[in-house]
Amino acid sequence: MDASHSGIQEPFDLIRLSLSERVFVKLRGDRELTGVLHAYDGHMNLILSDVEETIMIVDHVDGAPEGHATVNVAKRKMEMLFVRGDGVILVSPPSRT
């Protein structure tokens, strides 16, 4: 199957493949999302449904030695989410096990 047939000519075509599929999105600010991708645009703004957001919160304990910070993970779920594109680091299909 050649490329012209597959219709993949630019990076966004790859994201198009994941439309209405579950995707993993890494965001700035130690956040990650998984959700079903419904729409995107050139700014990488995304619309996701059935989203689970994972937020890493690094707590520096006073007096603890360097690099001994504890990481708390907070999760929350949303029905539908608009993700502003400037926070998106990567979009990928979720790893299949």
Partner: peptide, 20 residues
């Protein structure tokens, strides 16, 4: 980004699932 649409030599969609 200047992507040459007329002559794309790569085939990202070969059986192994690789990115473009």
């Amino acid at each position: 980004l200047q992507v040459d649409t007329s002559n794309v030599s790569t085939s990202p969609t070969t059986s192994h699932a690789t990115a473009a």
